[in-house]
Design a protein around this nucleic acid. Sequence first.
DNA 1: TCCCTGACCCCCA
DNA 2: CTGGGGGCCAGGG
Length: 105
Amino acid sequence: MLTPFQETVYKAVKKIPAGKVVTYGVLAKHIGCRSAQAIGQALKHNPFAPEVPCHRVIRQDRSLGGFKGSWDSSICDQKRQLLRGEGIPFDAAGKVHPSAILLSL
DNA sequence: TCCCTGACCCCCA
DNA sequence: CTGGGGGCCAGGG
């Protein structure tokens, strides 16, 4: 069961180009929502993975955030591997390198 | 309808 | 850089 809001979010996420990532905030602004937290709620329920690349969505502080509804370190690591496989660079702190972050869609 | 919670974000010490 | 506090919107009970 999907809400109209979730469809909007998923459609926006699918527009994220491979090799790049966006923040929850940017995604929220794009669909006209002022709360990035609402975006997270839609993504954790994501029934379209991996068609909807939720692993390309990260936090404003460049940390990865959660994945597949969990914050577990092992889960978090899977997300990191996926991104690394798409050519996304990471810095020493384990965060996404700024050059790979899209400031808008 | 009210109340709580969340894969968030901004500001200040 | 880290921690605390307030605000944000949508979903579910």
